[in-house]
Amino acid sequence: MKILVLVKQVPDTSEVKFNENGVMIREGLQSILNMFDQFAVEEALRIREKYGGEVSVMTLAPEQAKSALQKCLALGADKAYHISDRAFGGSDTLATSYALSLAIKKVGDFDLIMAGNQATDGDTGHIGPQVAQFLGIPHVSYVEKIENVEGDKVLVKSLLEDGYRMIEVKLPALLACIPPPNFEYSNPSMMGIVKAKNKPYVWLKADDIDGDKSRFGLNGSPTRVMKMYPPPKRSRGEVFTGNYNEAVKKIIDVLKEKKVIS
């Protein structure tokens, strides 16, 4: 089975800070592989281990994102595609998805395309579904687990707000993956890191992928970011202690007082 995983390098936002204008302070922030994508890569590697095949990874990003792709190779992926060109500068999710879909068509037939459900910086969740739409293949979002692959069908567990559903989807398809709460990501092994440098690493420019260049980069991006700001801080709330019945009674009293319930 030929699998392609779409990945993105993101700022490590575990300790993010904003300046007085609400703009994220990027100085000192390290760049890391988007955690949703790492989960997708690790799922892809598990499928390869079980069913055989090859796992490739792809990103559309400036050169410095190479370390994210190298990490994927060190984790065990077989091949990397790095799409990088000034022409893609300022791409929103639509232009990015368009370019990614062109590159995917260009580099080969994949049975399964995977991606993180969203990236921890933009958090849009657009890329996976949009790429699938451009490629004309089915997609499933919020995929927490790939249960089974049989013939040209794959059975996946997709999360819903109040539960989950099991979906069987025909290949080729795109799965946008979300790590389960207990997901413990892997660190690349020393041997994996050493081997990574000898794996195929393919650079792609705008000229290497056929398509309408007016749809690349800023020109192809209808989205405009007007302002970014952190959400207002919320107070901690009141904690009711004591025994269970007393605490519940106090909560009911407060809710009645505030006319939430009558």
């Binding site: 370390s67 190298q70 990490k71 060190a74 660190n187 690349p188 092994s189 020393m190 890191i193 050493v194 990574a196 440098k197």
Partner: peptide, 15 residues
């Protein structure tokens, strides 16, 4: 080297 930096990053994260 690039490889040594990757090694550091992986070991640091694990540790």
């Amino acid at each position: 080297t690039e490889e040594q930096e990757m090694i550091r990053e992986s070991v640091r994260d694990f540790a």
